[in-house]
Design a protein around this nucleic acid. Structure first.
Lengths: 201, 201, 201, 201
DNA sequence: GATGAATGAGACTTCATTCAT
DNA sequence: TATGAATGAAGTCTCATTCAT
């Protein structure tokens, strides 16, 4: 595929993301995409097979982008706590960015059961997230600050809490609570991961 | 409102829930509702202002029902751990029931930002959930098994983890992981709530 | 299906036939059908599954109607020549009616290879036509005016000549040649069926 | 017009014929033509005024080609029966070739009434066909094996039967009946042309 | 000469809502 | 109360044609 074509596709994806962020996933029309991209109505169908194809690529793009940012963030840290903190900070970037991406992501989650492509992309995203969790937990155990535990379970719970907190924050529509929810997320993660007693259960 | 009228409305809500559970929130048509309710197409508009009005009442109904079940579950227990376990068990009832309600709930979450009624109903649901969390945490502290902590924060994180785990489980579409995710949820909650050290942070 | 519904479907088929007769098969739009039927745009999709479904029923309707008319015509005659003449007269009814039906029929023939339903309907029409041919040939042999011959072959050639003549007449777009082509058709049929010599070949 | 230009136009016509043969007249797109010709999408509009212009030239090309083949075939024979047989043999060349050309031809017939250019081309084709018929009938009368008859009528009926048989064969989509229909066509023609009795009518 | 990205008219279809019965 | 036929707005998608490169 040519550079130009690739650029157009990217432009359409960005336009779609912005349009969805503004108007919502399910009211997104091809006309919206065209308007946001500043092109004509037929352009989306020219560059993508159909609307679903746009959305599929968009989901892939945003999950990749989220993962990438989070992965890069933890690479800059050398301690388990540092990485954990960086992970949560990256996940809770800013209210604007979280809204921009997470609103769209929630709509995708609602479509996962109707679209196996969406499911596959989300499954891949989960696996990437768990890998981050696993890296943090492994390091924490090497450092001796995390007790023995099932790493897969821990990784799952880390991502579940991050998503759960972000969704709850998003639903409340109070930007000023962003910092508060970030704290709750990080504290709860530290607390659960560093607990020496409960582990034996 | 007459008994009959009330019964018809309830019948329509149940039909809508089942129709959404089968076909999805966004492909739900008034014809679907009529078909599932075994009535004619005009009946929904006769008993509700419009489609949105049906959905609003449906969201209210399912969040009330979820809360009620969870509230009743913890009332049967007398210890903090008992109540916490009962809460998680009630939230993770069965794969079938979780899918039935949570799929619909996720779709509603996607609409919260476009519909202030949905937001209000969800806010009320969160408050109910936090009240359950608060009750558990308060009892645990009285029992001396939970350390001092910010009860509101704890309540928020409890619900966030439950939702986060249920959503992640739902997205993976593997019914057999239901028990596994329930364990993860409960263990993580216990671990984070009972941690003596981290609390002081 | 209710009487009313049946009537509406019939109304739509008639409107479609007239619209195609005026505008052509391939430029027929659902809007045309609605306009000709004097109803709104959505009505066709309400009474038929889709446009193709309308066309399928239309083809069935016109082939049935043509066959019926031809069949009834030959039943009124008692001799082979009388029946043959009646058959050709019925097939060549009037320029207006021939145009009305045959133009549409030719367009359907072009679609037979893309639509197995159309093929099935046309196959049934051919069988009905051959049955008429067979009846005429059988009677003619009983009367002793037609020699021994393969009845199936004769039936096939009778219909082929009728269609071939009508199509050629239609393509020339000279209404005044209608009677001329009818004569050609009938004379050729008589000539070929009554030939005593060639039979032995 | 340059050689190269002429070659390109021919290449596009052949590509169009094949594309129509495969995909059908009415689903033919300029993209199809480009794909079949192995050139880019704009090329057709470069060498022809528009799509209709391509089709017009295509119709001219195939009717000329059919006529030419049939004409050449009868020139090789010296007797009326020989020429008649050669004519039918040429018309019923092979199942593959008949499908290739006749499917396209039927679709053109459906368009004749919407396009006077198509009508003119088809009229010319008919005249060519009648000329062949006339030649055969004239020779047969000279040979004394055909009785006196209206040559124009005979020529018309010859072509009508050939087209009628080919169309009926084509619609049934059973390649193995090709020989059978050819026989029917030839036998019926002989029978009708050689009949001594009926002529006087 | 040739390309193919872009345009935008227009087709089919769906479906919430209305309203006569 | 209840029905379901009818409406028509709005969406997706196709594709002939144009035109800058």
């Amino acid at each position: 595929m040519s550079k130009l074509k690739e650029k157009r596709r990217s432009q359409i994806l960005i336009a779609s993301l912005q349009a969805i962020a503004d108007k919502g996933f399910h009211s997104l029309t091809l006309q919206d995409i065209a308007d946001y991209a500043g092109v004509s109505k037929g352009v989306t169908n020219y560059h993508f097979k159909n609307k679903e194809d746009v959305l599929r690529h968009l989901l892939e793009w945003i999950t990749d982008k989220i993962y990438e940012k989070e992965y890069n963030a933890i690479q800059k840290e050398t301690t388990a706590i540092g990485k954990l903190t960086a992970y949560v900070n990256a996940a809770f970037s800013t209210p604007a960015e979280n809204k921009r991406f997470f609103r769209v992501y929630i709509d995708f989650l609602g479509q996962v059961r109707h679209n196996s492509h969406f499911k596959d992309i989300n499954d891949k995203f989960y696996e990437n997230c768990w890998r981050i969790g696993n890296e943090i937990v492994t390091l924490g155990q090497e450092e001796g600050i995390f007790p023995e535990m099932d790493k897969q379970k821990a990784s799952i719970s880390i991502r579940a809490l991050i998503d759960g907190c972000l969704i709850q924050w998003l639903m409340r529509e109070q930007d000023e609570l962003h910092e508060y929810y970030k704290e709750i997320c990080l504290e709860t993660l530290k607390s659960s991961l560093m607990n020496q007693n409960i582990v034996s259960q």
